[in-house]
Amino acid sequence: KVLVLALYDYQEKSPREVTMKKGDILTLLNSTNKDWWKVEVNGRQGFVPAAYVKVL
């Protein structure tokens, strides 16, 4: 399983997205889209901007 680090806070803007806080460790589920990556955080799955996270 691939983990990513949240570099910035992100507030979800649609039901398909998830909120994350800077420093959160998320599970990367899909990174085929260069702009939006699907992650799991706190038991929820959704998209975050790829530029806001870094693969650990």
Rank of each mutant, 00 (worst) to 15 (best):
S31C: 05
K1V: 15
V41P: 01
V53M: 07
G46C: 02
W36V: 03
D9M: 03
S14V: 06
K22C: 05
G43I: 04
L26F: 09
L5K: 11
G43D: 08
K1F: 11
K34A: 15
W37T: 04
F47M: 12
V39Q: 00
S31I: 06
P49I: 02
Q45Y: 10
F47Y: 13
K13W: 03
Y10L: 01
G23K: 02
V48N: 00
N33S: 11
P49A: 02
D24R: 02
F47I: 09
V55S: 10
R44E: 06
E12L: 13
A6I: 01
I25M: 11
D35R: 15
D35E: 15
E17D: 08
E17V: 04
K13D: 08
N33V: 07
Q45E: 11
A6T: 04
G46Y: 03
D9G: 07
G46S: 02
V53H: 00
L7N: 03
L7R: 04
L29G: 02
T19M: 04
N42V: 07
P15S: 11
Q11C: 06
Q11D: 12
V39H: 00
K54T: 15
S31P: 07
D24E: 08
F47P: 01
G46V: 03
Q11E: 14
K21H: 13
D9F: 04
G46I: 03
E12C: 04
Y10C: 01
L29T: 05
G43A: 09
V4Q: 01
G23Q: 02
V53K: 00
T19P: 10
N33Y: 11
N33I: 08
A51L: 11
Y52Q: 05
W36A: 03
M20F: 15
W37Y: 14
R44T: 09
K13E: 14
G46D: 01
W36M: 08
Y10N: 01
G23Y: 07
F47G: 01
Y52A: 14
V41F: 15
D35M: 10
S31F: 09
V2Q: 15
V2H: 15
D24G: 04
T32N: 12
A50K: 10
T32P: 05
V4Y: 09
E40Y: 08
L3G: 03
E12P: 06
V18T: 07
K38P: 02
T27D: 15
L56M: 07
Q45H: 08
E17G: 10
E12D: 06
R16N: 14
V2F: 09
A50F: 02
Y10T: 01
D9W: 03
S14K: 07
L29H: 07
Y52S: 13
R44D: 06
K54M: 14
E12K: 11
T19D: 05
M20Y: 02
E12F: 06
T32Q: 14
W36F: 13
L56H: 08
E40P: 00
Y52M: 13
R16D: 15
G23M: 04
K21R: 10
T19A: 08
L26I: 07
Y8S: 12
K34S: 11
L26H: 03
N30A: 11
P15V: 08
P15M: 11
N33W: 10
I25K: 08
G43N: 12
L29M: 12
A51G: 12
L5C: 06
G23A: 03
G46M: 04
V39W: 00
K54I: 10
V39A: 02
V39C: 05
V41G: 10
S31T: 09
P49Y: 02
V4E: 00
F47C: 05
K22Q: 15
N30Y: 09
L28H: 01
E12Q: 10
E12R: 10
V18Q: 03
L7Y: 04
A6E: 00
L28M: 06
T19H: 06
T27R: 10
V39Y: 00
V53A: 03
N30E: 14
E40A: 08
V48C: 03
Y10S: 01
E17Q: 14
T27E: 15
V48P: 00
L3Y: 13
W37L: 06
K54R: 11
K34C: 06
L5N: 03
G23E: 03
D35S: 13
S31Y: 08
V55Q: 11
M20C: 06
L26E: 00
D24I: 04
I25C: 05
W36D: 02
W36G: 01
E17P: 05
Q11I: 13
Y52F: 13
N33D: 14
F47S: 03
P49H: 02
L5W: 10
P15K: 08
K22T: 12
K21N: 10
L28G: 01
W37D: 01
R44A: 09
G43C: 06
A50S: 13
N30M: 06
A51I: 14
V53G: 02
K38N: 08
K34V: 14
S31G: 10
V55F: 10
